[in-house]
Nucleic acid binder design. Structure first.
Lengths: 230, 230
DNA sequence: TTATAAACAGACCGGTTGTCCTGTTTTGTC
DNA sequence: GACAAAACAGGACAACCGGTCTGTTTATAA
């Protein structure tokens, strides 16, 4: 830890205002960020306290243990991130396949312009924690299951409208989530977002829809700029 | 750490025999296992010393730092694991697609019979370490790249033999690796190896080959037995 | 043998970790 | 205002971490 952060200039006995909800959220913000960027074990609660400008007593009041904090991050933040970036867009799309395509492209575009790949929050924590503790594992598995189910449900909705008959909903959902997770894994390791587009292209070829949309000029732009810390 | 391991019954001044290579390998064995099962940060060198029955001096002699040890595990063990379970089988297969299918099934079968999913060694370490240190990231990215390239080369070989013309080698390779990595990620989190089969099935539907082989009765067997430790 | 370096043993140390504990301040309720 | 509970502050602490250090044993070569 060495990032420069807003440090208040050491005033005397400050006027305190109790804001439990705000403080809780501030801690969750910092923890969510740190857990994704550096991982659970590599983020000490001392780091989090400093980054959130929160005292040990306050943190302990809201989250008695580090595990409790991580569980809250998973349940409240990681689940919300999956909901926001995947489930909602897919459900709002014209079809399941179109939704998946849109999310892949949206994420790829975002990563390319921000120039740095931090990976998928769910996968990052899942790898580090799912074998470490059953509570972690169950919480994370539930998010994965909900993610897949949303896509599978969308496929079923498509099929009831007569489209995409030959697709097995569960299998398609599993493949979509797996391809995305794995693509993010590679993109994070290579720091190259174009791998997401490669996987999407491979995935699209499998579509029964005859519309094979123009396969945009292959650009293999390397993104490897300004890691947030270090 | 609490697994029971072979502890020698405290003899007097033992007869020592220098076996640098053997000792190095013993340490690498233990480290490879621990890093995959519990992760890098969660495995202390004290744990490793105890598990390998090796003194601190010996360990430090062969691996001056924990980072050096991890780098050796990545370069020598993880790379070899990918070579053994993926690259060699794919190159030996009748075609790239057939090779990918065979590996998916072989791994799924192995996981089902051993009843516990520890995940892919490469992905496990990649998630935890690729953002932590550039040296780690580069080493891991190289393994991913070699993995993809082997598959892509196989596709190109197929094409020179007239088969599988409509497939983009790099994209297919990226998708295969991503689907496998992501499927393992989910399988590890859910402790359910059948997810591998779901992804494979979704992947196979995308094959241009008309041979749609019997899609074995869908069995969704839950595997969640005897985690190695804890 | 004897010199020399490699291989190993094990104690040691400064720093960090997560958690607990005591005390103070704020907030809500009567 | 009185009181209790929640919200917060910050120090203390034991356990642990990774690395270093000194010393001993084994192998190698002359």
């Amino acid at each position: 830890m060495s990032a420069e952060m807003t440090v208040r200039p050491k005033p005397g006995p400050r006027k305190r205002i109790n804001d439990p909800e705000g403080m809780r959220n501030k801690v969750l913000d910092v923890a969510e960020d740190a857990f994704q960027a550096r991982g659970y074990h590599a983020s000490s609660i001392g780091d989090l306290m400093a980054a959130a400008d929160v005292s040990g007593g306050a943190l302990h009041h809201h989250f008695p243990t580090k595990k409790a904090l991580a569980l809250a991050v998973i349940d409240e933040r990681v689940a919300a991130a999956v909901e926001e970036t995947w489930i909602a867009p897919v459900l709002a799309a014209a079809s399941a396949r179109e939704g998946v395509r849109a999310v892949f492209e949206a994420v790829a575009a975002e990563l390319e312009q921000q120039g740095f790949v931090r990976g998928c929050p769910l996968n990052n924590l899942a790898h580090e924690l799912s074998l470490a503790d059953p509570d972690f594992r169950i919480a994370l598995a539930g998010i994965f299951a909900g993610w897949r189910q949303a896509i599978a449900d969308k496929v079923r909705a498509d099929q009831q409208a007569g489209r995409d008959e030959g697709t097995d909903p569960e299998r398609f959902a599993a493949l979509a989530v797996a391809a995305y997770s794995g693509a993010m894994s590679m993109a994070k390791t290579a720091q190259d977002a174009s791998l997401l587009r490669d996987c999407l292209a491979g995935l699209e070829r499998s579509a029964p829809s005859p519309s094979q949309g123009g396969l945009a000029a292959r650009r293999r732009r390397r993104v490897l700029l300004r890691p947030k810390t270090l």
